[in-house]
């Protein structure tokens, strides 16, 4: 097995695990983590495109993966902020009702 195949299979497996859990888990927090796992899997697939046998690495996929991570971090931050705001709103609502 070449390193390329191992990395590729790992990436696809990570993606599948993340996708499955993002779809079935009830908790928003867990779904956010699952989406991050899936995204890392997609990043793996992209990183192996940089692998050139016998030569140096192709920098373009690295730039793509970094951009993908930035997008994911931003989206994750917004999602976490929403979870927090929702938690606060729910607590206030339960406090209001005697």
């Amino acid at each position: 097995m070449t390193p390329e195949t191992i990395y590729g299979a790992t990436g696809i497996a990570l993606f599948a695990i993340g996708l499955y859990h993002a779809l079935v888990l009830p908790s928003a927090l867990r779904r956010i983590v699952a989406l991050n796992v899936a995204s890392v899997g997609a990043g793996f697939v992209m990183v192996i495109a940089a692998w050139r046998p016998g030569g140096g690495a192709d920098p373009v996929p690295h730039a793509l993966v970094i951009t993908g991570i930035v997008v994911l971090v931003a989206a994750t931050a917004v999602a976490l902020a929403l979870v927090r705001a929702l938690h606060d709103a729910d607590t206030t609502e339960t406090d209001d009702t005697p």
Partner: peptide
Amino acid sequence: RAALNYLLAGMLGGVLILLGIGLLFH
């Protein structure tokens, strides 16, 4: 609550697109 579901659906869509782009680039 609606916006959180909206965002999670959008993120899931984004991750799927990213995987497709990765495969195409590969």
